[in-house]
Design a protein around this nucleic acid. Structure first.
Length: 755
DNA sequence: CCTACTTGTTTTTTT
DNA sequence: AACAAGTAGG
């Protein structure tokens, strides 16, 4: 093949049969190898639909499918592929395509078909996200009368998740528990799992575990899958956990056509049970395997790789990256006064690069924790720089969106009590804490879930007054929605908003932001309409039998639960990307800035004890190796956290970089220890005049189209920051600061009634 | 017994 | 910001 592949790449691409490990350093063309490998297999006569490729994120799956189809010159099926919410394989029914999915979405789809064979689940099981999990845990702790301070729900949640990822059952956890606390935790775990089963619900970890159970318990299913998927590929193999590896092993146990690709140096998910030890297990389980190592880096300048190599190879043996790329500019480390100065510095760089002709989408700002994005966002908004935050709080995590989705969930499944509990008194309908507890106890006494109980006529026995009326009303709403379940998706969402009286509730309870929230709900309806349209089209094109495909609502909810990286390339175009170091895995940008390279941030003060500090270093390694031509690391002397300003020390990892071609930019008098921890305001900088764009209530502004007006109110921050302006003609308008052509002016001379 | 209001806490990373 | 817990008032 004359595809400009190097010998190692060529070897990986042409290796079709038998187990294969591809160890691929950053920028070594791994995605290229994987897509070319699939294409090469198809050209060699292998049925495309017999190829299963598992990726780490949905975005990677879509990208890889797109590039593979391009190589094979297969047109994409519909016009919606670029839109983001649904990729080109909405249903995965196409016969002429390889199957590219994440572990979780592959498992979810498999379980939709077979979960009824796993007691006590049904095929319309619910998927509980982490907020749902937290609610179940809180419920259990209430039941067990444990207090929140000694058992923080979040920590409990991650302990349970950890057990699950190690495939430790509640019974085993109880056996192994040494301390009182561990025994209590194991009890919480046991009850948690019991509740999930009662509620016909699987959390993210269960999706994997249930598939392991399915494949080991139901031999015919395993056999059929082995016959169907004759070639299996796993990407980002260093970040697979035990159940994931088991699934891969089971699927390829017979044909042994398993190709795994990854890089131990980029292992950054051990806190989630992932382990590069799976490379060792693979070697044992597939002793006849071949190894291909991709070492040449095509992405970065030698300067960037020099820095990267100082951070790599701490644990898994040193592997040198090399490149034939031309020299670039030095990597820079810059110390700034505080987080606001950092944000300004970052924005300065962006403006400089853009002036040089670099496009926004070739620039990325990375950080260790999501909270760092806020200040940077504010600065970008102030300067009208376009940006997109990847991850963070997404649309589907908004309260109002989750509420409406909860109505649909409660109607769809009689056992989804987490959803029911969320909406039982939202909007308020007179069902308070006491009545709710009574209702729950009654349900328990009858051996029913709350959802099942609500649908029985005896459910309000012993409940009187407002609460009884409220419950009856709730039942009517749910029944009304149940009637619509077979209808259109958008119609269902609209009905949920309407029947619940949610809009009136919003206007009453959120006088500040109900307009924006209402818009979000409109957007939800639009998303439902779009999904509906795509599903209709996909269904028409396929010759799927009745019952072979889950209903639209199930697909809609599943997608929302499993696809967090909904940002499509379209939405990223023309914008600077901002994301965590974790989210940056697998991506590349010409210009990369990493903010907050400080002790306790990276390495983070709460890094897992087991994984230790090495994983933090690898995380920085991942960030550094995203850069193609320019890399800037920033750190501050002071940083605000909650209420306080804290003195900051540079990351200890920076010490590892001394002696490289790196350019350290430290002003004289830079802090070297935290002993001098007295807040010193930045001398030459006047925070009030320059950091503030003057848009306070009472300020006067000039709008290019609407003329002069007075600011009434300011809401939100970042891209969502809005102001209410009362214009001289009497109009009152809400404006999005980021987009409105505004300038602050001095108040007019003539009298104008105060606003 | 319910509602609306106040206060404190939460933030590590994600499917 | 969102959520839980606590309190006053109807």
């Amino acid at each position: 093949m004359s595809n400009g592949l190097n010998p190692a790449q060529e070897k990986a691409v042409s290796h079709h049969e038998g187990p294969l490990v591809v160890v691929a350093g950053p920028g070594s063309g791994k995605t290229r190898v994987m897509t070319h490998r699939i294409a090469s297999m198809v050209r060699a006569g292998i049925e495309p639909s017999s190829i299963l490729a598992i990726t780490f994120t949905n975005k990677a799956a879509e990208e890889m499918l797109r590039r593979t189809l391009e190589l094979l010159a297969i047109p994409e099926a519909n016009d919606f592929s670029g839109h983001g919410f649904f990729g080109s394989s909405a249903l995965g029914l196409e016969d002429d395509r390889p199957v590219l999915r994440t572990f979780h979405s592959f498992c979810a789809r498999l379980l939709r078909r077979h979960a009824h064979r796993l007691e006590p689940y049904t095929s319309s099981f619910s998927i509980y996200d982490s907020a749902d999990q937290k609610q179940v845990i809180t419920e259990v702790m209430k039941e067990m009368k444990l207090d929140r301070t000694s058992f923080p729900p979040r920590a409990t949640q991650s302990t349970i998740s950890h057990w699950k990822n190690q495939m430790i059952s509640p019974e085993l956890a109880a056996e192994q528990a040494g301390t009182f606390k561990d025994r209590e935790l194991a009890k919480i775990y046991a009850r948690y799992q019991e509740l999930l089963e009662e509620q016909d619900a699987a959390d993210f970890d269960d999706l994997l575990l249930l598939v392991v159970r399915l494949l080991t318990e139901q031999e015919d299913v395993l056999l059929r899958l082995q016959q169907h998927f004759r070639y299996v590929m796993i990407d980002e193999f260093q970040d697979t956990n035990r159940p994931q590896y088991l699934i891969a092993k089971l699927l390829s146990g017979q044909h042994r056509n398993l190709c795994v690709t990854g890089d131990p140096d980029q292992s950054i998910y051990s806190w989630r049970g992932a382990s590069p030890d799976n490379f060792l297990r693979f070697r044992e389980d597939f002793p006849e395997h071949n190894v291909v190592t991709l070492e040449q880096n095509y992405r970065s300048t030698p300067q960037i790789l020099e820095v990267a190599s100082r951070l790599s190879g701490t644990e898994f043996g040193h592997r040198e990256l090399f490149t034939e790329n031309a020299d670039g500019s030095s990597v820079r480390v810059q110390l700034v006064h505080d987080e606001r100065a950092e944000a300004r510095r970052i924005a300065d760089h962006v403006e400089d690069w853009m002036a040089e002709g670099v496009s926004s989408d070739e620039i990325a700002v990375l950080y260790r924790v999501n909270s760092l994005s806020r200040v940077i966002e504010e600065e970008f908004v102030r300067r009208r720089l376009k940006y997109a935050v990847v991850g963070g709080m997404s649309f589907y995590e908004r309260k109002e969106v989750k509420d409406i989705l909860a109505y649909l969930r409660a109607a769809r499944s009689t056992r989804d009590d987490v959803a029911l509990q969320r909406i039982v008194n939202t909007p308020a309908r007179g069902i308070g804490k006491v009545s709710l507890e009574k209702f729950q106890d009654d349900a328990l006494a009858h051996g029913r879930t709350m959802g099942e109980h609500l649908r029985r006529s005896d459910c309000t026995d012993g409940i009187r007054g407002k609460a009884r009326k409220g419950l009856e009303h709730l039942r009517e709403v749910i029944e009304q929605l149940e009637d619509r379940l077979s209808g259109g998706l958008a119609d269902m969402v609209e009905q949920a908003i309407e029947a619940s009286g949610y809009l009136a509730h919003l206007e009453k309870s959120e006088p500040e932001s109900w307009q924006e929230r209402e818009r979000n709900l409109q957007e939800l309806v639009a998303a439902a309409a779009e999904t509906e349209e795509i599903l209709d089209q996909a269904l028409q094109q396929s010759n799927a039998e009745e019952g072979e495909v889950p209903d639209p609502l199930t697909i809609f909810l599943e997608r929302i639960a499993l696809v967090s990286d909904a940002e499509s390339d379209d939405q990223m175009r023309g914008k600077v990307s901002m994301m965590t170091l974790h989210a940056a895995k697998g991506l590349e940008f010409r210009k990369v800035m990493i903010a907050g390279v400080e002790e306790t941030l990276i390495p983070h003060s709460r890094h897992g004890e087991i994984e230790g500090i090495d994983e933090e270093k690898r995380l920085l390694y991942v960030g550094v190796t995203r850069a193609m031509e320019e890399l800037i690391l920033t750190h501050t002397s002071w940083r605000r956290r909650f209420q306080d300003r804290e003195p900051r020390l540079p990351s200890s990892f920076l010490a590892d970089l001394e002696g490289t071609s790196i350019e350290f930019d430290r002003k004289p008098g830079a802090r070297t220890s935290v002993s001098e921890n007295v807040w010193d305001p930045e001398p030459e900088y006047h925070h009030d005049s320059e950091e503030d764009d003057g848009l306070h209530p009472g300020a006067w502004v000039h709008h290019e189209l609407l003329g002069r007006g007075c600011v009434n109110a300011v809401q939100g921050y970042g891209a969502a920051r809005r102001i209410t302006v009362r214009f001289e003609n009497g109009d009152e308008r809400q404006l999005v600061v980021a987009y409105a052509p505004l300038s602050v002016i001095s108040p007019p001379d003539e009298e104008w009634e105060a606003c």
